[in-house]
Design a protein around this nucleic acid. Structure first.
Length: 259
DNA sequence: AATAATCACAACCGCCTGTAA
DNA sequence: CTTACAGGCGGTTGTGATTAT
């Protein structure tokens, strides 16, 4: 599908570091007209920048609610925890750290934490013993699904950036989840139109449709609204899930798909 | 003091999804 | 249904600052 590049290199656009004047133009414009419509914004604001560049500058630097200063110890612990859980999904991680941007967290991870954690791993005299003690700390294996269950029932998120917004759960897997207790879905539609009681459903997930052939269900994550994430400093995601579905998602779940 | 190595982080790039026409 | 566009994301790069030799 052919499409024009967002920022054509032929265009006479400024690149590189932003000047104070450009910052002011962008800030004034966004304050007056609000965010969005970045491409047209550049012209209207009188900026010789591509829309993406403006968006990035605003989100990562000019936005008034950005927290300046060093990452605190608490924030660092939370980042490590969330990264263990979510992998390199920086925007999600940033969403749990008010005032911090995905770029900032990504940079912090790449320059500080990754190296430090690697060092720690390397220094540990007996990695395998450690893994037994804490299975969730396993190093990512390369060809797993981005969101898979390990044989020990712990979830692992692949660090390769792959957006995981949809999960397909087979009917087999669905049974124990749909059966009470506790359900994640707003509503479930079967081919016979039997719906699960929406009252019994809390949910960060939204059922989208039923695949006709095998009755597998596809659901979308509303990742921004995963309320239980607020409890993450104290919990592992795997625990949260297992607490809620009693661990019925099969560890051999090849049907956990992404995209 | 000079140079090399490392760090920190802003910015860019390419790819993806959602959506309107 | 197809296409083009806007916006969003994660990976990577460029560069100035800092530290080590």
């Amino acid at each position: 599908m052919g499409r024009n590049p967002c920022c054509s290199k032929d265009e006479d656009l400024n690149r590189g570091a932003w000047t104070a004047m450009e910052d002011k133009l962008l800030t004034d414009y966004v304050k007056t007209h609000g965010e969005g419509k970045w491409r047209s914004l550049t012209k209207r604001a009188g900026l010789k920048r591509c829309g993406k560049s403006c968006r990035l500058r605003w989100l990562n630097y000019l936005r008034p609610d950005i927290k300046r200063g060093n990452i605190t110890h608490d924030e660092e612990e939370l980042i490590i925890r969330l990264h263990k859980l979510l992998g390199n999904r920086w925007s999600l991680i940033a969403g749990r750290l008010p005032g911090r941007t995905d770029n900032e967290i990504k940079n912090y991870w790449n320059t500080n934490l990754r190296r430090r954690l690697q060092k720690n791993n390397h220094n540990s005299s007996n990695l395998k013993v450690k893994e037994k003690e804490n299975p969730n700390s396993k190093i990512q294996q390369p060809d797993q699904h981005p969101f898979t269950m390990n044989t020990d029932s712990s979830f692992m998120v692949q660090t390769k950036a792959t957006r995981c917004t949809k999960v397909v759960i087979s009917q087999e897997q669905l049974k124990p989840i749909v059966a009470p207790p506790p359900i994640y879905v707003d509503h479930v539609i079967h081919d016979d139109d039997k719906a699960v009681d929406p009252e019994s459903i809390l949910s960060p997930f939204v059922w989208k449709e039923v695949d006709n052939d095998d009755l597998d269900l596809k659901l979308d994550f509303k990742m921004d609204e995963l309320d239980f994430f607020s409890d993450l400093p104290n919990k592992d995601f795997s625990q949260v899930l297992l607490e809620n579905n009693k661990g019925h998602l099969s560890p051999k779940s090849d049907n956990l798909l992404h995209r």
